[in-house]
Design a protein around this nucleic acid. Sequence first.
DNA 1: GTTCCTGCAAAAGCTTTGCAGAAGA
DNA 2: TCTTCTGCAAAGCTTTTGCAGGAAC
Lengths: 140, 140
Amino acid sequence: MKSNLGVITEKLKNNKIRLSHQRLKVLEYLDENRIHPTVEQIYNALHDEIPTLSKTTIYNTLNTLSEAGIVKSLNIEDNEARYDIRTDEHGHFKCKKCEEIYDFEVDMDKVAVKDLEGFRIFSKDLYFFGICPKCSNKNT
Amino acid sequence: MKSNLGVITEKLKNNKIRLSHQRLKVLEYLDENRIHPTVEQIYNALHDEIPTLSKTTIYNTLNTLSEAGIVKSLNIEDNEARYDIRTDEHGHFKCKKCEEIYDFEVDMDKVAVKDLEGFRIFSKDLYFFGICPKCSNKNT
DNA sequence: GTTCCTGCAAAAGCTTTGCAGAAGA
DNA sequence: TCTTCTGCAAAGCTTTTGCAGGAAC
């Protein structure tokens, strides 16, 4: 998928964010591994290829990209942030057994929202928790 | 509102959680101050009345109560947990200006959820972010 | 009398900051 | 060349843990 990275580099240029090797690798990883990784996971995955890479750079990169709206940070865990390259409106399901996070499509307009007249809404986070089908079938 | 605390103490007894002075005070505070406070806020509020109170106890208390389903912890901030004594399904709106958190009613059944056949859902967190009416009117 | 809870001190874990050298434009 | 980025070390914060004394039942 060269097209995706092309779109991504264009987004960086539009936001006047320099195309450093580290940033492109982090973005490539997020694009090719839609697992909503933690900083730790990104670090472990890229460390072999870029031995000098530091976690500080990953934190800096993700903060920069979040502010530019190129990635989205998820607060679905209580201790550690996760990152998503999908920035369109969708929900996240976290399995309490395997800890995996699944995307799902939502129609937020159908959430009956009384009580919010006069509120200007910029973003919406929807997190579901439970057991995924794979873990349900492993009857333990 | 003596009835609320009566209900609360009954919940504690049902869960075999001892009715310590500290726990009752934390719960009373949550019940009378529906501001989704942080541990820090609870600590500051109760410290005058209970000078020996420690943050460790507040953390222990809130963890115990969360596990028993008597309070709910919110991950609406990226750094600090907030706590809610309302445990029924409802949404939270956080104002980016005044940082206040508002409750709102939702009907989650109307969220069009494809992609989740076979998933067993235990809980749902819905967080909205934007500007509240008060802050919208202060045109700054 | 038992069992569980409190609170101090210390540790753990995630994230940010300061800064000198390196890389991008 | 000028500005920005990287990465090391250290610090900052929230939260957890170990444990002795104390409170609940």
